[in-house]
Design a protein around this nucleic acid. Structure first.
Lengths: 216, 216
DNA sequence: ATATGTGAAAACATTCACAGCT
DNA sequence: AGCTGTGAATGTTTTCACATAT
């Protein structure tokens, strides 16, 4: 157990471990070893032990980890022991798909509201979630106690949307707009760039090495 | 110019640079320095020079990089100088949203076909793209000359879908199912896990440090 | 016997700083 | 004078290997 700063690589692995532990619990497993976990996702067992050891000594030597206990720890560590209210800004194709996706995924994230600038969309429902005018963001975010915002608007509007979100005091933002955004200090911004991920695949295909038998 | 193995971190930055160069070209800029690029995305200029130097000496000392020339190089390096045919497996909410997203993004990725197992969806159109029966994957993939596949099915079906895709000889796969998949050697698999990204935000919110003024 | 927790080593990535070119 | 390309230095992440606990 150390008090260093935890890297993002570690925390996203914790999410993966937790998902796996939920599965193991459902399967009725009582304990699991770091080696057992490691095999499930082609990962090094020392890495798992180290990731967990940042937060405490959860294991028992000679035995492994108790599934239920570790699951509770990770749930708490990841802040998933209490609900989060999500908003999705941008009620276009991607925004509505994300709303549906997050609504369907049973999780502690409730999609509480959506926003758009298009008058035709304002007032409509996506699933059971109302689309509000982006102009009223601060008021609605307050009313619904939003703590996480997802940006799903075209790149050109993203900086302005980010601005509106941050002035409302929201500290956690996920951005799907393909543009580099700079969030204020003490606001966590994660960008997922769907285009760049694809281009990484194109690069791979362009490499000479795997060209044997490759479809062109 | 080295012949080392290029890291994925480098290649995704190349995508970012290319996007920026396209913008600069549209703005009529002739040259740009590594420092100029670096400022745009809060990045170190040495990193940019190093990333580029893996592939050649594209710059001119005392001047910088010629926008058009560097753009051409990066386009070629990333394999974006020729078209790619994309398929999306899973015509649910996420799959159709991704289809629309990639269709709209003007790029070298053409959405050529979609697949699903649900008889109600087979034969329908998403945009102008037909949904085929997943059973016919090999034949249709061949017909449309698919070289990149996107997995957008529920986690439980993802392993079987991966299997079907890889036996068809497709070498580049993007996975949105929240499950750890293992692709064969010489197949590139990228997973984007929308849930894990959110949980990283929850972890951040659960930390004591930024709790001043945070909405709960 | 078995599996954790962790220093030490190795691998990998970023940044510095400057020689060298235009 | 100005900016690249790159070795060297620094920082970060992963893996090894083993003492330590049950």
């Amino acid at each position: 157990m150390k008090s260093e700063k935890i890297s993002e690589l570690t925390t996203s692995r914790l999410s993966v471990y937790l998902r796996c532990l939920n599965q193991l619990a459902a399967d009725g497993e009582r304990t699991v070893s770091s080696e057992g976990l490691a095999k499930k996702f082609h990962l090094n067992s020392a890495q798992i032990r180290k990731d967990l050891a940042y937060f405490g000594e959860f294991g028992v030597r000679g035995v492994g980890y108790y599934v239920d206990e570790l699951r509770d720890h990770l749930t708490k560590i990841l802040g998933l022991d209490r609900p989060h209210n999500l908003t999705i800004v941008g009620a276009g194709r991607l925004g509505t798909a994300l709303a549906d996706y997050y609504r369907a995924a049973q999780s502690n994230f409730a999609v509480a509201a959506m926003f758009d600038a298009d008058p035709a969309k304002i007032g409509t429902l996506v699933g059971k979630v109302e689309v509000f005018d982006i102009k009223n963001f601060p008021e609605i975010a307050e009313r619904y106690n939003i703590d996480v915002a997802v940006i799903a608007v075209p790149a050109e509007f993203a900086p302005a949307v980010l601005q509106q979100i941050t002035v409302s005091g929201i500290k956690a933002i996920m951005n799907f707009a393909p543009v580099p955004l700079k969030a204020p200090e003490n606001v966590k911004l994660k960008t997922v760039d769907l285009t760049i991920s694809l281009e990484g695949l194109a690069y791979f295909l362009a490499q000479p090495s795997p060209q044997n038998g490759q479809r062109r």
